[in-house]
Write a protein that binds this DNA or RNA. Structure first.
Lengths: 335, 335
DNA sequence: CTGTTAGCGCTTTCAA
DNA sequence: TTGAAAGCGCTAACAG
C-alpha cells in the first residue's frame, strides 16, 4: 500500500506550487499552456488522483447524495423505484447511493451515514426505531406514514385504488373475491421480531373493507413469481367458487397468470386476476395483467423534494414533511 | 440556507472543546458520562451532523465507493448486475454509487469522479475515448475487452455459449436459424457517432459463425419486450421457413414468447426460441424461456476484485487487469 | 500567469 | 478525563 500521491507530490515533481496543480487539474484558463502540460505530465507520471473528500470539503458548491436502501432487487417494482429515484436525483444534481436492505437496517444506515446526506427507505418497524437507527441522519420513509419527528415520509394511497377496482370488477360481474397475500409484508405493522408473526397486510385490510364482506378465500405466499403461482393455485383449489383474485403485488400476479396459462384456465373468463404495482412487465404476459399502478415517479419526485428541503436547511433536523401519492388502475386483459 | 452547524458550534453550546465533541460522537470511552450526555444534548438541540467529507478526509480507514453506470433500468439484466454488484460491494465493505447511462458518458463520469474511487460501466465507444473521459479515474469496462492502458475490463464469453447452444439445437432438429438483433447494440463496434450507424452485433457474428452459413433471416428491434415481439413477428412473416430463433436478449425473447403465445404459435414445436442473459423472469412465461445465461455474479465479483486491487495501490494508475467470465445454457421449455 | 496565505470540518497525536 | 496543537488534501482569495 504505497503512500497516497497528493497534490503536493505533483507540485514538487512539476516544479510548481500546489495551486498551479489545481489550476491544471480543473481546466482553468489562468494558466500558461506549457505549464499546464508540464503539470499534467507529472500527474500522469505519478498517477495522481485528487481526493474526492478533500475536494468536496473545500468546494463551495457541495455534491449532495441521497442514500437509497432498496428493499429487493428481485422485484422490478423496487428497481423501478430505484430507476425513478436515479432520474429524479440526476435532474437535481444529486448523486444516488444505493444499499440493499438487509436484516440489519441499523448497520445499513450506519454505512450510508458516512456517505449520504439523506436516506430514503422502506421500513417495516416503528418510526421510533427508525429515528433511533438513523441517529440524526435525515430519513424519508417510503410507502408509510410517519408520525415521529425527524422522519419524513412519502405515503402511498393504495386504498382508493383498491376501492375503485372493486367497484369496477363488481360492475363486470365479479362476485366471489379472493386474495393472495404476502407472507411477510414489508408494510408490516406494529411489533415484528418478538414472536409476533405477521397479520394481514394493509392491502388485505383495504381489500376486505372495499369488498364489504369477508373474502371468499385467502392464501399466502412469498413475494415472488413462483410463490405467487403456488399460492394462486392453492386458492383456486381450496376455494373453487372464487371468480376474482387480488394478488399482493404484480410479481406474484405474474405467477398467477402463468399458473392459469399453463393449466389452460381461462383468464379473465373463469377467474379475474388483478395485481398491484403497475409493472410494465405486466404487458409481457398473456393475457396482459390488469394492475393497480402506483405512481412511482411521483414518489421519487416527492422524495427528492424533501431531500432538497432538508439540504436547504443545511441538514438540520426539520419538522417532518409528509407527502402522499396516488394510484391509478391499468385495465389490461386479465380482469 | 442557514450556516452549517459544525463541531465548533456544538463545542461552544456544550461548553467543551471540539475534541470532546468528537469523543462523544464516536462513542469513545475516554469521556465522562455526564459530559457525553451534555454534548449529545447540544448536538440534538443544534441538529448537528458531522460532515462526511471532513470525517472521511481525516480518518485513517477510508470508505471506498464503486461507481456503477447502469446501462438501463428497464432491462432486468442490468438491474440484476446492479444487484450483484451491490452484494459484492457490501461484502467487501464498499459503497455503491449508481448513475444512469445517458448520452453523455463524459458528463456522467465527471459526476461520479467526485464521489467514487473506481467506476464500472458498459461502454460502446473505443477504449481510447473511455480512457480520455475518465481522466485518471480508474475504470472497469464491463462486457468488453480493453486493450488500452488505464482501462481494466471484465469480458464475457458469450461465443462459447452460442456455439454450444447451436450444436444442441441442431441435435434437436433445428435446421433454419434466424435471429432478432438489437437496433443499437451496446457492444457497438468501432466508430459510433460520426454517421457510422451500427453493423451486426458481436452476438450475431458469433451466431453466424456457429451456424456456419448465412442465417435464414434476421430482423432488428430495440431492446424491449414490445420491440422484441414485433421484430419476432416480422421475422416469422418474412422468413416462414425459420424454425429456430436466437433473440438478442431475454427481454426481447420474452416479447417473442408473448407474440407466439398470443397467436397460438407452438413453441418450441413450430419455432424454437432462445434468449441471452438467463433472466429469472424467463421462468415466468409460458413456455419457460430457454436462455444462454451469463454469469453476472462472477462479473460482479471480478469487478470488485479489480476495484480492491486498485484501492490497494492507492488508486494509482495500474497496468490494466483483465478478467473473463463464462456462460452456461439454461434449457427450459422454449427450445 | 503564478505563488502565498488561509482555511473547509474533522480527528489525531500529545500534553495538562 | 479534557484541551491544545497539528494536520488530512484540497481550493478560494489574495497577492505578486
Amino acid at each position: 500500500m504505497a503512500k497516497r500521491v497528493t497534490i503536493h507530490d505533483v507540485a514538487a515533481e512539476a516544479g510548481v506550487s500546489r495551486q498551479t496543480v489545481t489550476r491544471a487539474m480543473n481546466d482553468r484558463d489562468d494558466i500558461k499552456e506549457a505549464t499546464r502540460l508540464r503539470v499534467l505530465e507529472a500527474v500522469e507520471r505519478l498517477g495522481y488522483r485528487p481526493s474526492r473528500f478533500a475536494r468536496n470539503l473545500v468546494t463551495r458548491r457541495k455534491q449532495h447524495a441521497l442514500g437509497l436502501v432498496v428493499a429487493s432487487f428481485d422485484n422490478p417494482y423496487y428497481t423501478g423505484i430505484a430507476a425513478e429515484m436515479l432520474t429524479a436525483a440526476a435532474e437535481r444534481g444529486w448523486q444516488l447511493m444505493m444499499a440493499a436492505a438487509q436484516d440489519d437496517t441499523e448497520a445499513v444506515l450506519g454505512m450510508l451515514a458516512s456517505q449520504a446526506d439523506v436516506v430514503a427507505l422502506h421500513f417495516g418497524g416503528s418510526g421510533a426505531e427508525l429515528s433511533e437507527f438513523a441517529g440524526g441522519l435525515p430519513v424519508v420513509r417510503l410507502e408509510a406514514e410517519s408520525l415521529l419527528p425527524g422522519v419524513h415520509s412519502v405515503a402511498l394511497d393504495i386504498e382508493s385504488g383498491i376501492v375503485a377496482v372493486v367497484a369496477e370488477l363488481r360492475a363486470r360481474g365479479a362476485r366471489r373475491f379472493g386474495m393472495v397475500d404476502s407472507a411477510h409484508s414489508l408494510q408490516a405493522h406494529g411489533a415484528r421480531g418478538a414472536g409476533g408473526g405477521y397479520g394481514p397486510s394493509p392491502k388485505r385490510r383495504y381489500f376486505e373493507r372495499a369488498v364489504g364482506e369477508p373474502l371468499a378465500g385467502v392464501t399466502i405466499g412469498d413475494e415472488s413469481i413462483a410463490a405467487g403461482s403456488r399460492a394462486f393455485g392453492e386458492l383456486l383449489e381450496q376455494h373453487p367458487d372464487v371468480d376474482t383474485v387480488l394478488m399482493f403485488n404484480d410479481l406474484m400476479a405474474l405467477g398467477a397468470v402463468r399458473y392459469a396459462q399453463s393449466r389452460g384456465i381461462d383468464v379473465p373468463g373463469r377467474v379475474r386476476i388483478v395485481g398491484i404495482d403497475g409493472l410494465a412487465l405486466g404487458e409481457a404476459v398473456h393475457p396482459r395483467l390488469t394492475s393497480i399502478a402506483l405512481d412511482v415517479r411521483a414518489m421519487a419526485s416527492h422524495t427528492m423534494d424533501i431531500a432538497e428541503l432538508v439540504a436547504k436547511a443545511d441538514f438540520a433536523r426539520l419538522d417532518p414533511i409528509h407527502r402522499r401519492v396516488g394510484s391509478s388502475i391499468l385495465w389490461r386483459e386479465s380482469a
